[in-house]
């Protein structure tokens, strides 16, 4: 059964499926913030930065990541924010 059913089911076997499902589940488990809190934080960050810079809110990307500390092998959770600034940001400040 084993060989044949693997052949007909395609290349992915059940342990690969398990591994992939686990990776996804664990990544979201590990995130320190719930999606609701992340969304609220995003709105707050936009508000604060918009006071000083003209930012592209559509291109904004904020998420939790793992990062390795330079001086030790410890990995820590980090908030990664990629906030694109619009070209005419300088004028934006001048005009205020």
């Amino acid at each position: 059964m084993g060989l044949l059913s693997n052949f007909f089911r395609g290349s992915e076997n059940s342990s690969d499926i398990a591994k992939n499902r686990l990776k996804v589940a664990i990544t979201s488990d590990r995130a320190v913030c719930s999606p609701e809190i992340m969304e609220q934080m995003k709105i707050d960050i936009i508000q604060v930065i918009s006071k000083y810079l003209d930012i592209d809110t559509d291109g904004l990307d904020i998420r939790m990541t793992k990062t390795e500390l330079e001086d030790s092998n410890q990995t820590i959770n980090a908030l990664l924010a990629n906030i694109p600034i619009r070209e005419d940001s300088r004028n934006f400040r001048k005009n205020r």
Partner: peptide, 16 residues
């Protein structure tokens, strides 16, 4: 079962 591809191996678990 690991050999048949139907159980996570210890390496898989360590990696995760």
């Amino acid at each position: 079962m690991v050999k048949e591809g139907n159980m996570l191996s210890s390496d898989d678990v360590v990696e995760i």
